[in-house]
């Protein structure tokens, strides 16, 4: 047994005894980034499949959430920086090895594209809207004409954005609970699931509600599979990995993990959605809200718990 102690009086705020560098703003940013990526991905796929008429919520209404979510997420992110005035330095460097650099550049492209997407459909939502300048009408017509091209550009970008929210954490081998290759796909799946839930909440037609209920059921099952995969991977790992996963299975965050994420965030909404699809008269609002809360809980859980884990020496 090893007992390690600082004897020179080291007690740095937000680093000792364990890191608290990344907190709620980062978790919120990861959640909103995944949500926006998912919504834009569904909207793009629907447009490419010519389902604009059949899926108005997916292609017109829900995408309004995307730019709002991204902007709130970015504000949270910048708020979390300790040297805020130099944030522009992100755009003076392309660092292939740094996930955060990838994220910064992808967001630089996705954010304006998400605004353009919403802009092109805004008069469908507010028919009385007048753009005043003819150039804006021209732009609107141009985007509508090239919507499929925009969708094709957005699909890979949204996949990168969704995966990036996980890779941002998994790139740090110093924090064993983050350092697993499954976290990228897992956060992408979770982001898509929260996006499906948001569409269910906004959808007016039963067709759209049920379609996304089915999609969400599939995504939740994949997500549970990936979480089991992740936990098994930790138990098959080295000392640091086995030690790290204890925090979720039998430690400070196990209630949050089992009750609020696995139970209320995944299994319970899965059950409700399946029962509803089988014809039981249930509201789909409740599982959708639970999935959204579960998605945020998952990000908070991983961000907080990961910083408690470290390589022991």
């Amino acid at each position: 047994m090893n007992e390690e102690l600082f004897i020179s009086g080291r007690n740095i705020h937000n680093i000792d005894p364990h890191l608290e560098i990344w907190e709620f703003p980062i978790a919120l940013y990861l959640f909103l980034g995944g949500l926006a990526a998912g919504i834009l991905l569904f909207a793009s796929i629907a447009v490419l499949l010519d389902k604009e008429e059949k899926l108005p919520t997916t292609t017109i209404w829900a995408p309004i959430i995307a730019p709002i979510a991204i902007v709130i997420g970015l504000v949270a992110l910048v708020f979390d920086l300790s040297h805020k005035m130099f944030v522009w330095q992100l755009y003076l460097a392309i660092r292939i090895e740094s996930p955060m650099s990838w994220g910064a550049w992808v967001l630089l492209i996705v954010t304006p594209l998400s605004f353009l997407w919403v802009f092109s459909d805004l008069r469908k939502i507010f028919p009385k809207l007048d753009w005043k300048f003819p150039v804006l009408y021209k732009l609107e017509a141009f985007i509508r004409e090239h919507k499929k091209f925009l969708a094709m550009v957005l699909i890979p970008l949204c996949l990168i954005l969704g995966i990036y929210t996980g890779i941002l954490l998994s790139a740090f081998n110093a924090r064993p609970l983050w350092n697993n290759a499954i976290l990228g796909p897992l956060f992408l799946t979770s982001g898509l699931s929260t996006a499906a839930a948001a569409i269910i909440l906004l959808a007016k037609s039963d067709y759209e509600k049920h379609l996304f209920s089915k999609i969400d059921v599939g995504l939740i099952i994949i997500e549970i599979g990936l979480i089991i995969h992740m936990v098994m991977g930790y138990y098959a790992g080295g000392e640091a990995q086995i030690d790290a996963i204890q925090i979720l299975i039998n430690g400070d965050y196990s209630t949050m993990f089992f009750v609020f994420l696995v139970g209320l965030g995944l299994l319970f909404p899965l059950l409700l959605e399946v029962l509803e699809l089988w014809g039981l008269k249930l509201s789909v609002i409740i599982p959708a809200i639970l999935v959204l809360i579960g998605g945020l809980v998952f990000r908070i859980l991983m961000v907080d718990a990961g910083q408690l884990t470290r390589i022991l020496y």
Partner: peptide
Amino acid sequence: TGNKCIGCGACIESCPYDARYQHPEEGYV
């Protein structure tokens, strides 16, 4: 380099030795 650092904390998270900190007055790492 202080005036290139945005204080995102990625390096602090990545250090297995917890050898870095955010400067309390300046903000850079």
